[in-house]
Design a protein around this nucleic acid. Sequence first.
DNA 1: TGTTTAATATCGTTA
DNA 2: TAACGATGTTAAACA
Lengths: 249, 249
Amino acid sequence: MTELADALERVREALGAGKVVLLVGEMEVTYEGRSMSWLGRGERILMIKGDRSVLIHRPKGCEPVNWQPPGSHIEAWLEGDRLILSCNRTAPPERLKITVSRLVQLATHKLADEAEFEMHAREEDMKLAIIEEPCIIEEGFRIVESERPVREGAIDILGVDSQDRLVVVEIKRERASKEDVKQLSRYADQIELEFGRRPRSILVAPSLSTSAASLAARLGIESRRLSPRRAQEILRKRRGLDRFLAGNG
Amino acid sequence: MTELADALERVREALGAGKVVLLVGEMEVTYEGRSMSWLGRGERILMIKGDRSVLIHRPKGCEPVNWQPPGSHIEAWLEGDRLILSCNRTAPPERLKITVSRLVQLATHKLADEAEFEMHAREEDMKLAIIEEPCIIEEGFRIVESERPVREGAIDILGVDSQDRLVVVEIKRERASKEDVKQLSRYADQIELEFGRRPRSILVAPSLSTSAASLAARLGIESRRLSPRRAQEILRKRRGLDRFLAGNG
DNA sequence: TGTTTAATATCGTTA
DNA sequence: TAACGATGTTAAACA
């Protein structure tokens, strides 16, 4: 197969030059390492990036069927009328073997992409919004400390209410589960041990699961509705205001 | 830009025909939905599959920088000298907008892939290995029940030892963490409540983290070393033996 | 280097 | 549909 022999040369050249390889064709895939998998012959897309990460995509589904993280050692050779690609890692030991039996398309590109990726509306942004605007929790709420370490993990926010009672705040960016309520309860236990009196506990999340809500009620844990999106809007508004005040100062 | 106008037509045709689109070029990307993200201009690979899942890959890294799961509604149009792709979902509401400013390559393919994907050596296989060969846990160990539901979740394996003491077994396919030890301890609490006496607790995993090991020691929790790979070997050997015995029967 | 935690996690199963 | 755990989770932050 002259076509696959040519492909082998181009793949080797691309690997050496740190190019991205896009190979469309008929292939079999086996993986052995943390798990083991077999995938029989079919038409797929193989992507090898400049950092030697490897992805195999089927014609459907968002996730790759097989992959190898960046830095794998890649070898390529011909075996009869097949093009073999062996992608190996040592820690943990794992191997991905791709057997290409028919080539549909092969492209290689040297790509330049230095842009910064910015993401917002994460759990971190919810915490920042509360720190910059504590009345999200309630009127008169003040921050004492963020990420205060306790025996198991860290308390998202420790604060005091208008009557100077300690408040333990736990933040979740998704619907809170029973387990999240238990975690907050354990944090409150730690604070009670340390300060000698029971703090208030407030779970901040866009919503609570039914079991989480009933457990929270039983344990006397309060909750506040806040979505990551709303937190992001509060931050943006506030920072806009800060810039305005700075400009006038 | 005649090139991008031509690309628009080919993308539309591919979307209608359920083809896979591979577009390499310079683009900006914004996402708004469960989170929000911005990515400035750079050279990337856009993949749209037949099921309308969308992936954007940078030249490095295993994971896509942005994506949209299968079934998103995709619209494409020209805006000045830019090709715009808008990929929308309704549940949850989220939108991915791609602005292509320069085309490097565009390919579309109708791919056929009907192969079955088989994966082995998962946590499930570790459980099966213990069920088929209980002496992996210890001499005289017998299975009572698998996946026994308790208040929070399910016990992987409940069994009895050679002295008829109850044993709660928790299986982890990776190095076990402190949290895994706590989970097992809570399961043991539930069994103690139900049966009126403290069961033995055994954590099965390829290894334990240092903090997990010390917590296990403090709580009187035992452990057994078992990797998914070894479990898979045991299963294969055993099933081979079963077939041999069945052939002789 | 190892551990811990967040993620647009995704994906499957079960009640 | 909601809840819950497994995943070859991946990836980043932290000690």
